[in-house]
Design a protein around this nucleic acid. Structure first.
Length: 349
DNA sequence: AAATACGTCAACCGCGCGAAG
DNA sequence: TCTTCGCGCGGTTGACGTATT
């Protein structure tokens, strides 16, 4: 038995919407709210398929839709999200305020994928396109440098100018994936369950049931210390480290530049004043040149468990002695024990 | 000026999922 | 447990505008 059509195809308008149709749809939804798309056309006096009404509303008529060109910052965010999530446009759209999945998908297919390709980056895998069969993990360092420069080039120029030389400590990784805060709900569905769909994700979810594939690296923020401990102990399944921004960042960048997306660390990719948050897989890590010696030194003499967390709590300084967070920040991260996770992960993975 | 190629994006389509019965 | 239904998703199409020949 075939699947029943979503609506009768007889006498149903198709194609571009008229202003009159838009008005009918908007007025109906303003009065009755969204939902019940199947019955909506008849009730609203529209000769349209319910799915068509839904699409028109979600992609065009909703009042929160952002008009205008997609900005460079939005592009960067989309690229980074795509590196993590692939073609999961609805999830990506959920992280780009005012943009629809359709819009992002179109923008990706028409512009961003070509832009990446022109940079020598495969838009599907986010790896560098090479005809050389030696593109193995150990040869990724130069590619990382180039990719880093590319992503930074999408940012404001002063950040580009601050890109330090990167030195390699340990072995390289195979895949460069930028870290993005608070994606755990999304990644949970993507990675752990054999479900093919990841739709309707609760953005506010605090699910942390994430496992990592063996050759990929994700950064995310654990919910609490217990989760950190759990992840650290399960080295088989966790090959990523948490964001260590809070360990190193003086907070200024965040407060000044990320007002549009306060809940996401979306612009901190390759913020190279940081060290091990750049790329972290297994016992591999990258540090910026200025931090390398100290990082290695610290690696040889790790603090006691909880020491870093305590240090920041009490003194508000990071591991290099710089002011790290103000009281407000500390409060924000009281249940977000990224410091311990980052440090221990950097040491022991 | 006309024809053609190309780029953009709104809209359509089929499918999968979850809820309800 | 199975079927049906509504919804939402990603992939694709096609109309339209612009650029190029």
């Amino acid at each position: 038995m075939g699947r029943a059509p979503c609506c009768s195809k007889v006498g149903v308008n198709k194609g571009a919407w008229s202003a009159e149709e838009d008005n009918l749809l908007v007025k109906y939804i303003q009065t009755h709210g969204e939902g019940n798309w199947r019955s909506l056309p008849k009730k609203a006096g529209l000769r349209r398929c319910g799915k068509s009404c839904r699409l028109r509303w979600l992609n065009y008529l909703r009042p929160c839709i952002k008009r205008g060109n997609i900005t460079a910052d939005e592009e960067e965010l989309i690229i980074r999200m795509h590196a993590l999530l692939g073609n999961r446009w609805s999830i990506i759209a959920g992280r780009v305020p005012g943009r629809t999945d359709n819009e992002i998908k179109n923008h990706w297919n028409t512009k961003l994928s070509r832009k990446l390709a022109s940079r020598g980056i495969d838009p599907k895998t986010h790896k560098f396109i090479t005809t050389d069969s030696s593109n193995r993990a150990g040869d990724r360092f130069d590619q990382f440098q180039s990719e880093k420069q590319y992503y930074c080039s999408q940012r404001s120029q002063h950040l580009v100018s601050n890109v330090p030389k990167v030195v390699k400590v340990g072995r390289s990784t195979d895949l460069v994936i930028p870290h993005v805060h608070n994606l755990k709900a999304d990644l949970k569905v993507q990675e752990t369950e054999n479900k093919s769909s990841s739709r309707s994700l609760p953005v506010e979810s605090h699910n942390t049931n994430i496992s990592m594939s063996s050759d990929e690296c994700y950064n995310y923020t654990p919910a609490d210390s217990a989760e950190c401990a759990s992840l650290i102990s399960s080295s088989d399944s966790v090959e990523a480290k948490c964001d260590s921004r809070d360990l190193h960042d003086n907070g200024c960048h965040w407060n000044e530049k990320h007002d549009d997306f306060p809940e996401y660390d979306v612009f901190n990719f390759f913020d190279v004043s940081n060290a091990e948050n750049e790329i972290c897989c297994n016992d591999d890590y990258w540090v910026d040149e200025g931090s390398a010696d100290q990082f290695v030194k610290q690696k040889q003499a790790p603090p006691q468990s909880g020491q870093w967390d305590k240090q920041i709590d009490v003194e508000g300084k990071d591991n290099l002695g710089y002011p790290c967070m103000n009281a407000h920040d500390l409060s924000d991260h009281a249940n977000n024990d990224v410091t311990v996770m980052s440090w221990e992960a950097a040491l022991w993975y």
